[in-house]
Design a protein around this nucleic acid. Structure first.
Length: 874
RNA sequence: GGAAGCAUAGCUCAGUUGGUUCAGAGCAUCUGCCUUACAAGCAGAGGGUCCGCGGUUCGAGCCCGUGUGCUUCCA
């Protein structure tokens, strides 16, 4: 087979992904093996792949592929969530393009369009995951609005209501005036915003005096129901208990005191608008203030405002300033910057608003979810996130689950004309309950118009993808649940992790996953979070096209330290592509030897036997390291270890050591070993870079049907021979030192040298001499017991090397180097001797530590002796 | 205003109960090489007051205190 110059990733990716899929390698059904399960954190159905997904899903694929190769029954469940707000926004936009107003449609008509949109455009992201090589069980693809799933969400709502965990309450919420929906705190983005601080004068009742307040929202003064000052503020002490008049509308409001007020901010006097500010609302509750709501749900002013009725809130702000000025109420205006909340979805300024919503009483359900994390039943990687989790759980706030949207799970609450309600899974059931509850029958109840927060469905994900709630105790859920690992971003810790644990404990009486691995956040080179609005997020599909999926997977993982944010740069993909190239060239080299194997090449056997012995041991050593790194979720380090094992140990050392001379044959056994090592390396690398490794695996040898790397099982770990590893390290050190001598003395690599070695351990050198000779291009190697005159000398560890060459010798550079080494060693020896001379050290330190120091001393002395002798012979 | 995290080479980061030659890796840089697998490469090299200060200890990059700087989360 003729190999192409470079690895051709496009063709390979298409070929292997469909090959694996056709053979159902990614599909899982329960059997007697140990399961390894990951449920994908369901991406938004409107989503497209970005770098965050790339990181997150590469990690999941690495874990799943490795588990599959370790003999576990690996199952990775794909799917999407319905993303109420985002999807509804997309559908509304699509309708607008068609010239259709959402308001002109019935709920059913709208949902018809929404499903049409979902079928056509939704879930693109799942197709994109295939491009990345993700080994998901596609037969298990789930969606949070699948019929069974939908019903489960409704049933859970009814169940929680019946348990008394839900309530309906008027509460201050974040209101999106554009989407006309409530937002959770997490959906509000705070941004530094340039504003103006207006100082306004309020007339005091019964005194010829004013009080001046400072506000950034002058359009809300019509909702003012008090002015608040600090009780210890001397400036206002005489006004306690008095009343003031709101400018323009002359409402009479009390002046109250509360130490909530910051005395040195603004004027120290705060206008209190309970209907339109979170803190004011709490203040209002505490002081029993009237609540005057002056806004409609779209952010325009209503009749209670008395003036500027029908104006938008920001228009009203512009218009009220001249009115206040004219009334003599505006004292001054100053620039002011503060954080303002914006809707994550529509980017409009969030309006605090009082609204009747459904809530989950989190204190009733959260308890067990804190314990299982704190006692490590659910292990967090990195563990530092336990703190964050505990803090949030201990200060948990109730969860507003209503959304004023149509796309989603419609709240199963049913109302009569007076607003009496029952909660039931169906209209029919609701009518029955109504009769029982209110003692009268009714023909018609109307269902709540709102739907549920998307998270209220995705918190069931870890078990409901196996129908663990809709079909309790079925074979799948028994086998796969609890799942093994959840891989997610730390910003999701409250949305998913905490609530999934709560739902798991509530409905399966078991944790949903044993481990949670938090990835970092992908940032650009300048440390900015990647986002659509900044435009600093690269198009992943283009990157895959350009560099290949393997290179992209490599690029994102190599720059991803465990649990820390990563500054991603396209150059890391280049490193991945270069690595592909390296692998491909190694393949080309090995394939070149294939036709030239021979059974009786004594030369290559003798030369290569140490190389073959060493690499087998090196492989065992590395496998143990990699195993440990995986246990600690240090995937980036594991990849680095494999990268260096392949590039440095295999390509730079091993292949060079066993490489036959130009057009020379290679021993068949050495060749077979080399292919076997190459295979093992591909197997180690496969979870990270599945395509090229499968390609090379098949290119190395003809394979029987079903002999594919994706499902090839890892061999058991074997221990490495430390003595062999040590000798190889010594060999590498000597080769490097001698090459350095060549560079420093400008001896061309083509020019042969004669090498003499002065060592106490000739036997060891005899094992590696042939390799050494080849690697430093020495025409002869011999062993001496004294300095050889007229040579260049160098010292490695305790051994001395004499290099004879045709060339004239300039001893100055080697002298310089030897003196430098000597200087360092003497300093080192000095510090060791000082330590050993310190009685307290010898008494207090552990005996083995003292012993190590003694050995250091002896080693240093031996080296110093060798260098001094070398210097003397110059 | 409350809380947490981070600070090690030009850049991004490792450094696992304080003790092997501990001051490391990758990338970048410099020097020399088109050596029949690979210039997307090979060989070699240079580069750091481990943020400042103080403490604990025989011994601190690591532990404690403090200052400074940066980041994030929550008000």
């Amino acid at each position: 087979m003729e190999l192409s110059k470079n690895f051709e990733h496009q063709a390979s990716e298409e070929k292997w992904y469909s090959y694996w899929n056709e053979r159902k390698y990614f599909n899982s059904t329960p059997d007697e093996r140990e399961p390894y399960t990951i449920v994908i954190p369901p991406p938004n159905v409107t989503g497209v792949l970005h770098m965050g997904h790339c990181l997150n899903n590469t990690i999941q694929d690495v874990l799943v592929r490795r588990a599959r190769m370790q003999g576990k029954n690996a199952c990775w469940v794909p799917g999407t969530d319905h993303a109420s707000i985002a999807t509804e926004a997309k559908v509304v936009q699509m309708l607008r393009e068609k010239g259709i107003q959402k308001a002109s449609l019935s709920r059913d008509e709208f949902l018809g369009y929404a499903w049409e949109w979902k079928e056509k455009y939704g879930g693109i992201i799942l197709q994109q995951l295939k491009k990345m090589g993700c080994s998901l069980d596609w037969d298990r693809t789930s969606f949070t609005m699948d019929p069974d799933y939908y019903q489960s969400v409704i049933n859970v709502f009814v169940d929680l209501y019946n348990k008394g965990y839900l309530y309906r309450g008027k509460r201050m919420i974040n209101w999106d005036v554009k989407a006309k929906t409530a937002l959770s705190d997490e959906e509000v983005i705070r941004k530094e915003t340039q504003q103006k601080l207006y100082h306004l004068r309020y007339k005091i009742d019964g005194l010829d005096e004013h009080i001046i307040i400072a506000t950034v929202r002058p359009e809300t003064i019509m909702g003012d129901t008090a002015i608040c000052v600090h009780p210890k503020d001397e400036r206002y002490a005489h006004l306690h208990g008095k009343f003031a008049f709101v400018p323009l509308i002359n409402r009479r409001i009390p002046i109250i005191t509360d130490d909530y007020v910051t005395m040195d901010f603004g004027t120290g006097a705060l206008k209190v608008t309970p209907a339109h500010d979170m803190n004011d609302y709490q203040l209002g509750q505490k002081h029993n203030l009237e609540v005057v709501d002056i806004f409609n749900e779209d952010g325009t002013l209503n009749a209670d405002a008395q003036i500027l009725i029908g104006e938008d809130r920001f228009e009203a702000r512009k218009k009220i300033i001249p009115m206040l000025e004219e009334a003599g109420s505006l004292v001054k205006t100053e620039d002011y910057t503060s954080e303002v909340g914006y809707s994550e979805r529509t980017d409009v300024v969030v309006e605090p608003r009082l609204s009747l919503q459904w809530w989950v009483d989190m204190k009733k359900i959260a308890g067990p979810a804190l314990d299982v994390v704190m006692n490590d039943d659910v292990k967090f990687y990195p563990a530092k996130f336990k703190n964050l989790y505990r803090h949030w759980m201990e200060n948990i706030k109730d969860w507003c689950i209503s959304r004023q949207l149509w796309w989603g799970h419609r709240i199963p609450a049913w109302y009569d004309a007076e607003g009496n309600y029952v909660v039931a899974v169906s209209h029919e059931e609701a009518l029955k309950q109504y009769e029982t509850k209110f003692g009268k029958s009714i023909a018609q109840l109307s269902q709540d118009e709102d739907c549920l927060d998307t998270w209220f469905s995705s918190w069931l994900w870890p078990f409901e993808v196996f129908k663990g709630y809709s079909n309790p105790g079925n074979a799948d859920v028994q086998y796969y649940y609890p799942t093994n690992t959840l891989v997610t971003a730390p910003e999701i810790i409250f949305f998913w992790v905490a609530r999934m644990i709560m739902a798991g404990m509530e409905y399966q009486k078991e944790i949903p996953f044993k481990e949670v691995y938090f990835t970092g956040i992908v940032r650009d080179k300048q440390g900015r979070k990647m986002s659509k609005s900044l435009g600093n997020s690269p198009d992943l599909l283009e990157l895959i096209d350009k560099y290949g999926a393997d290179a992209c997977r490599f690029g994102i993982l190599i720059s991803s330290p465990a649990g820390n944010d990563l500054l991603w740069d396209e150059s890391s993909n280049e490193q991945g592509r270069n690595f592909n190239n390296k692998l491909w060239n190694a393949l080309k080299l090995v394939k070149m030897w294939e036709a030239r194997t021979t059974d009786n090449s004594q030369q290559t056997t003798a030369e290569s036997s140490f190389a073959v012995e060493w690499f087998g041991n090196r492989l065992n050593e590395a496998k143990a390291e990699i195993d440990q790194l995986f246990k600690e979720f240090r995937l980036s380090e594991a990849l680095k270890t494999i990268y260096s094992l392949i590039w440095d140990d295999f390509c730079s050392w091993y292949l060079e050591w066993v490489k036959p001379g130009f057009e020379q044959p290679i021993d068949a056994e050495v060749y077979a070993k080399t292919v076997a090592y190459f295979e093992e390396l591909m197997q180690l690398l496969h979870p990270f870079m599945p395509f090229i490794t499968e390609e090379i695996y098949h290119a190395l040898k003809e394979r029987a049907a079903g002999d594919d790397l994706t499902i090839k099982q890892y061999a058991a770990l074997e221990t490495a021979d430390a003595a062999v590893l040590h000798l190889a390290t010594q060999l590498k050190e000597v080769i490097t030192a001698l090459r350095d001598v060549r560079v420093k003395n400008q001896i061309k690599s083509k020019d042969p040298i004669k090498l003499s070695i002065e060592t106490a351990d000739v036997d060891s050198y005899k094992r590696i001499a042939l390799i050494l000779q080849k690697q430093v291009n020495a025409e002869s190697v011999d062993y001496v017991t004294a300095a050889v005159a007229g040579t260049i000398s160098t010292v490695v560890q305790k051994d001395k090397f004499y290099i004879a060459t045709e060339q004239a010798i300039d001893t100055s550079s080697q002298k310089e180097q030897l003196l430098k080494d000597l200087d360092y060693l003497k300093g080192f020896l000095n510090s060791v001797e000082k330590k050993l001379g310190n009685e307290r050290f010898v008494q207090n330190a552990k005996p083995e530590v003292v012993e190590v120091e003694r050995k250091k001393k002896a080693d240093a002395e031996a080296k110093i002796k060798a260098i001094e002798e070398s210097l003397a012979s110059l």
